[in-house]
Amino acid sequence: MTPIDRIAATNRWRDHSITEKALLGLGLLGLALTTPPWPTAVAVLAVATLAVTRGAGVPVRVWVKILAAPLGFVLTGAATLLIELGPHGIGFAADGLPRAAGLTLRATAAVSGLLTLTLTTPATDLVAGLRRWKVPAEIVEIALLTHRFLLLAGDTASAMHTAQTARLGHVDWRRRIRSTGLLAANLLPRTLDRARRLETGLAARGWNGASLAVLTPKRPVSPRRLAAIVATLAALAALGLADADGLLPMLGMLPA
């Protein structure tokens, strides 16, 4: 189980309506992608940070750590904007620094929006939400089972890795490659075997190959929270539009 799964299942917003959380998270993501990075991306990042840490109760240290995880990819991408190939060979791009900073800000804000949703909503709730959005039941059920099996396969792989390590299976790169190959090769038959046993368990409870229907808990939308989310997104959008219209030229150090 990953830290994101654990937080998603235990945070204070766990039982809030998925509609509210999806609107906020995807709204922030959309704004980060479509509005100028300064100052909107910074505002998006601030809103996401407040929502996740003050709202959902995720410790700031954990939030920063998770947010920083994709930063390596973002910085690698941004670094390519710093240089350019000119008539005299490779050199620093004239507007490279502001463009790289803008990209970094925009990407980080976008990730923070997405994380606002994924850190407050278990993956299974997200998939179950698809049911309400009229995605075919077969696809939703396969996605649910896939998620369940990923967690079980992850646990199995972790236990196998521990057992291999205890028997010196990972002491050098040669043995590490061999052990990892053996682990991967053994994981598939074990997972298939587990799938067969799960089928037995389901059949014992009356499943005959049709729908895997369960009673999903109802989490009604809170009008008060919904209004707050819409107001926040509207304010951020207004900020972005104001900047796009050149109403904040004094902050235009970092162009869009």
Partner: peptide, 17 residues
């Protein structure tokens, strides 16, 4: 081998449904 649904409540509801 038996639990497949996201939460305990949902899983236990599978048989009755």
């Amino acid at each position: 081998d038996q639990l497949f649904a996201p939460t305990v409540f949902e899983d236990v509801s599978f048989g009755p449904l």
